[in-house]
Simulated assay, not measured.
Amino acid sequence: MTSQPFTAITTGDGVRIAYRFDGDEDKPVLLLSNSIGTDLHMWDGQVPALTAHFRVLRYDARGHGVSDVPSGPYSLDRLGRDVVELLDGLGLERVHVLGLSLGGIVAQWLGIHVPERVERLVLSNTAASLGPANQWDRPIADLLAAPDMRATAEMFLHNWFPDHMLRGDDEVVEGFRRTLLGTRREGVAGSWAAVRDYDLRRTATLIHSPTLVIAGEHDTVTSAGHGQELAATVPGARFTVLPTVHMANVEAQEEFLDAVLTFLTEPS
């Protein structure tokens, strides 16, 4: 397997978006899109299995990781265009897409607005809408007024992982905690605004790429009901529920990879 170091493209509005490739150049490309409050390392545990079949492209969304952190609010259209500009800059015409949480929302946008760029689509622990919109105003305001990311980081961790992973010093959870604490508040608040303002419950019917929707049985952020609703909206979508909270790729890694790889590698 070959890996490349971080490099970046610059979007039309002047924002630097960092990315990296893992895997052999002769394999089909699988784009991974991340949750709010994480960077491309949220997929570290899955990359070895994925690169057996794909050249994996990961990126840090604006406001996260080593990408630039412009002032918010961000919009879903802008987050989606960032990906399109990344694909354009890399000369990639068509890719598979796997997105989790906000990454799954961005993946939906790609399937709706640039279907010619999307081969197969995996939408994990995500939703077509997370309204009502006004529920996001207070968290955004409180975060921007907070002295640091500590309280928000702990909230995210308790929403993402089961209690048994939060007890003690789980190395994976500690990695996510470090990433959260190192993320600038403006990036999280800007991304929350994108979540506040989006609603794809009608337009998700325009997704025609083969689609797999994965939900977590115990997910309190994007519930199994959200996943079921999304799968019922996307024509022909498949639906599977894993016994997890929000970070299904981490908590049930083997089951997650089995579902993803079975779907992405089956004959057309």
Rank of each mutant, 00 (worst) to 15 (best):
T38K: 03
W136C: 12
P162S: 06
A215F: 01
F263S: 04
V188Q: 00
E119D: 15
R78C: 02
A252H: 15
A232W: 08
W43E: 04
D163N: 10
G216F: 05
D24M: 10
R58W: 10
G63L: 13
H164V: 06
Q108K: 11
L264N: 02
L143K: 00
H113T: 01
L180W: 05
I207T: 13
G23I: 15
R138N: 03
T10C: 02
G187Q: 04
P235I: 14
I17T: 03
S124C: 15
T183Y: 03
V234A: 15
D68E: 11
R238D: 15
T211G: 02
D258S: 09
D199C: 11
A8H: 13
S223G: 00
P115Q: 09
S191M: 10
G37P: 04
T233M: 15
S129K: 14
G14M: 13
L143Y: 02
A237Q: 12
S101F: 01
K27P: 14
G12Y: 10
A107R: 03
S101I: 12
G216H: 08
V260I: 09
D26W: 01
R150D: 12
R16V: 08
V195S: 13
V114T: 14
L100W: 07
T203G: 00
P147E: 03
S75M: 09
L200V: 00
Y74Q: 06
V56D: 06
R184D: 05
D169W: 08
D219Y: 01
S3K: 11
P28I: 10
R58T: 14
D26L: 12
I105Q: 01
D219M: 03
F239L: 13
L212W: 04
L166Q: 04
R16I: 06
S129M: 08
T2Y: 08
E254N: 11
F161Q: 03
E171K: 03
T11A: 09
L31V: 15
T183S: 03
Y19D: 08
M42S: 06
L242E: 10
S75T: 15
P162R: 02
G111C: 14
L86D: 02
T183E: 01
F256D: 10
L242T: 11
H64L: 10
D219N: 05
A232I: 13
G65L: 07
A18L: 05
N159R: 15
L86Y: 04
V47D: 02
R196P: 05
V122A: 02
Q135T: 13
H64N: 11
S67E: 07
L110G: 13
R78Q: 09
